[in-house]
Design a protein around this nucleic acid. Structure first.
Lengths: 332, 332
DNA sequence: TTGTATGCGTTATCAA
DNA sequence: TTGATAACGCATACAA
């Protein structure tokens, strides 16, 4: 800025004014300063601006796993809102590792980012409570805040389970399998709970739980083997999978064993990832408003960062939607 | 730091020494300072450190599309190297949009990041040349540097095309289709070129080009329709797709039309994304060393950032590998 | 409308 | 081994 001022024949303060309050500067000097900036290739130093102003122009989203399309879609929603507010976004990937989550949170606090969006790998990390206490607001994404210390945005998994089960029951299925696990995951148990609730309305329908060790394609295949081993007369005619990876694995196994989808086995997945519709038999799936989740989380964060005092934490819950495709059509 | 100094009964400089050169401080005062830091919950201000030291402790990777697993895998490699060097990584997503790429590059230059890794959405953006000139090193990822202004890391797509074609020819296929496009993309044309080169060694083998408008699942389906329309006696018995999305779309269409894979149509994809092996018929695919690509790019960047002067730009090319799965087994 | 001066939180140099 | 002090580049209050 000193060089710019010298070249334009003005003082340092005037250059600053051109940058921050151009209306306070006469047109002619403004043009001269702008010309000098262009000629010298001057670029503002954000570290200095931040230090002086005390405000950071960046947010961060610490995602659970960027390899999962769910989180990159959430991230896109976050970016949109941040862009509109003229803020940058750090996208960090904890990869499900508590240690990496911890080191990112430390790093971000040192950076004094304007706020942190977090889908925790370790919800018990004391940093999650400390950050807001020390002035960095935190919004939890896809994870409810048990302590009301933060805002949070989540999707109603119980409702998702209800939607999936009801759809299968309406298609005439009576022997239905729930494939998912570990049941310790709230997301999984809520989806199962929803399915069970929906079952109350369908006296003839029955639900068998096939528990898995993880929400992976490989586990989906294993579940498929187990189901295929059951005699056709007793085998479930439909499966509700706790996520799309399981559903894809199940579908793959069915195809390989020569069972038809949906004729021998209808399948509903969860998450509606891009590849759900790219499957050999396009997959019916429960879709979550990922983009909106990200947008809303970012908006809550900005709201909290704006208000110095008296912020009311909010906990927003969104509704999922069922997307029907070939993997459940044509029963009866 | 002032508060910490006061509470520990030492001067500001001593606190700084405890933080940066603990050996210069006696054990007793060091303990006192550390205790004060803990009690006060003091966290270093990175903006001030950066301003004073002139060095940023962060890198950035501006990816073309974080929804594409290819780039998130590259990003993981980058993160590893950065972590090991005690650096943070900004992961930015241009989403293929030149305007977003531009605004990220501007933002990152203002932040004075230590360096930028870039898979360009717009390789012609003048910023790409400007950044290094102004002191921010840039390494191109998955894109060669035409001007030798930057380091770059790429994968040999011609070789990948050769591998794919040779494999199909070795399996006994003589009528082979190349599915890909637009041919204006260097990645696509190189893969086709490789296939053509390999063809020279197989006199009986023939290559038909089916051009697509984009590398998407939908285009793969369309290509499948076109191929299925050809009488079986003249129809290609194998297809080499320019990426896995096309291959997945093709596979989906084949299954829906009742054609068998690989018996009626063998399929080779490209990229070996996670879902390649999750497909109904697990997909043979050309795998790129994504992780290594990211690691190497980050190492080149660190090397360039370290040396003040006399840096020699390097252009590394990696070799892809063929991963054989069910979609090409059992011919003849 | 423009210029001057001060301080943001650190690090590093020098003196004690 | 420790303390005082000057920058780092910018934004702003205030003076001109």
């Amino acid at each position: 800025m000193k060089d710019v001022a010298a070249r334009a024949g003005v003082s340092l303060g005037t250059v600053s004014n051109v940058l921050n309050r151009p209306d306070r500067v006469s047109a002619s000097t403004r043009d001269r300063v702008l010309a000098a900036i262009g000629a010298l290739g001057f670029v503002r130093n954000e570290a200095a601006r931040h230090l002086r102003s005390g405000r950071s122009r960046t947010l961060a989203y610490v995602a659970l796993d960027t390899a999962n399309p769910f989180f990159t879609d959430v991230a896109k929603g976050v970016q949109e809102v941040a862009d509109a507010a003229g803020l940058g976004v750090y996208l960090c990937d904890s990869g499900g590792d508590p240690a990496r989550q911890a080191s990112y949170l430390d790093l971000l606090e040192e950076q004094r980012v304007g706020g942190v969006l977090l889908t925790p790998a370790d919800a018990a990390d004391p940093r999650i409570a400390q950050l807001p206490q020390r002035g960095t607001p935190v919004v939890l994404v896809d994870r409810a805040a048990p302590d009301a210390e933060h805002c949070s945005v989540t999707v109603n998994d119980v409702l998702g389970g209800e939607l999936a089960f009801t759809h299968l029951a309406e298609m005439g299925h009576e022997r239905i399998a729930f494939i998912g696990g570990p049941l310790g995951l709230k997301q999984v148990s809520d989806r199962l709970l929803g399915a069970r609730r929906a079952m109350c309305a369908w006296i003839e329908a029955d639900l068998t739980v096939v528990e898995c060790e993880a929400l992976t394609v490989a586990e989906g295949r294993r579940a498929g083997e187990r189901l295929a081993g059951v005699p056709a007369s007793r085998r479930p005619t439909a499966a509700f999978c706790a996520n799309d990876l399981l559903a894809l694995g199940l579908l793959q196994q069915m195809v390989q064993l020569g069972l038809r989808v949906p004729e021998d086995m209808a399948i509903v997945g969860y998450d509606d990832i891009e590849f759900a519709q790219a499957a050999a038999v396009p997959l019916t799936s429960v879709s979550q408003p990922r983009h909106l989740l990200g947008r809303t989380a970012a908006e809550l964060l900005l709201a909290e960062a704006d208000v110095t005092l008296g912020h009311e934490h909010r906990h927003l819950v969104f509704a999922p939607e069922l997307v029907v495709r070939s993997s459940t059509r044509h029963h009866r």
